[in-house]
Design a protein around this nucleic acid. Structure first.
Lengths: 216, 216
DNA sequence: CTCTCGGCATGACAAATGTCAGACGCGGAA
DNA sequence: TTCCGCGTCTGACATTTGTCATGCCGAGAG
């Protein structure tokens, strides 16, 4: 918020890019901070170890770019991104993930995330991507994008997904029925339908498949 | 600290500690290498992104300490440690892990691993622990140790564990029976027994519990 | 040696699950 | 408007799964 030239054009940086780093693994976060600090146009202004903490830090320091791990205690990267989008529209979000499951990418993009990359990336590349995101561009890792496209959209209806989600911890049908306020027969029917659509052997295998593809 | 003493005694370092770093996440590995390089008594001589690669690098460079991620493609940290123990007895192994499950710690110690720590650790502490391990001491993260002790040993018999393992992907009993060369009735009996011992609702919940505790 | 205990193995029965045919309401196409 | 397709919901029926009582065998105690 300084002079006139603050259009979203990518041409000339007017100052260091202010970064928020959030990852629950201190070792990784610290190492990453040290490495990004070597780039003289990047500046780490805040670090966080959980979803809520990331949000609080963002409010306090108003970073230009938030680099968020996908899996964090409290609230995952996508949830944080959603809140951030509403509270700090000027802050771009970049998600890094260890083992990216296809569905997450879709959710992330819907939440307004500008970048999505795996951790199998050099720090050099990460720095470049941070600059690109700050400049207003998007970047999605090609391999993750290919996975997401090949796995496609969820074929499950809302109820099917809901019931499948209640089945994740191996609960019996009666309990699912009660928690979903449905007849046990109906629950069986939805589960059966979901199992068929996913081409699974039974509902437990279906749960596994749906989780792998990020559909629950 | 320079004179004659080149025995394997733990007292005085005679030169930089030569490190092998193995982690499938390039970003983390690179950042870690950079950070450890700041310590002038530590020297990263090799890096690897998978289990087999770690083994090959170890043979080629003969490091003093191998810092291995627990989850890697090809072969996990414990398997690599086992091979290393046999081939390079002089090389101490330190395992780092993101989400440590109790059973892994036990397996690791049985494989001759000297250190076991989570990634929620500062680089400073990691460097200290690397030195301790190199000096011949052991170090196990207190919290992980507590988890391992509280969860205790597996109460499952060999067959029970075997059958439970075949049930991980939700296969029907008939298939498990065929793969284990048992009668379907026997398979049900083992599963039932395992479910009871683990205090689970059904076998799928039992599989989940056993995996969480590292018993399968 | 004999007894007892624990792991291995099996089949019968009860309970939970998967499958099926069908009813209702809603929104788009004919 | 009328019809058709789709999602929602239900109960009846066949299959699969969980539980139980029981037998066999080897190891260690008495």
């Amino acid at each position: 918020m300084t002079t006139s030239a603050e259009t979203s054009a990518a041409t000339a940086p007017v100052g260091p890019v202010r970064l928020l780093l959030a990852d629950d693994e201190h070792l990784i976060r610290g190492a990453l901070a040290a490495l990004l600090a070597l780039e003289d146009d990047l500046l780490v202004v805040a670090e966080a170890a959980s979803g809520p903490e990331a949000l609080a830090m963002a409010r306090a320091h108003v970073p230009d770019v938030a680099v968020l791990d996908l899996q964090m205690p409290g609230a995952d990267g996508v949830k944080v991104a959603t809140s951030l989008r509403a509270e700090l529209p000027g802050c771009q979000v970049l998600i890094v993930t260890g083992h990216g499951r296809p569905g997450h990418l879709k959710r992330a993009l819907e939440a307004g995330v500008r970048g999505f990359v795996p951790k199998t990336l050099s720090a050099q590349r990460l720095a470049e991507i941070i600059r690109a995101v700050h400049a207003g561009n998007r970047y999605v890792d090609p391999e993750l994008a290919a996975d997401a496209i090949s796995s496609g959209d969820s074929p499950l209806t809302a109820r099917e997904a809901e019931v499948l989600e209640l089945a994740v911890d191996g609960a019996p049908v009666a309990e699912i029925a009660e928690r979903a306020a449905l007849s046990p027969g109906t629950v069986r029917n939805y589960l059966s339908s979901a199992v068929t659509k996913l081409g699974a052997e039974n509902r437990h295998a279906a749960v596994r498949l749906a989780r792998e593809r990020g559909w629950v």
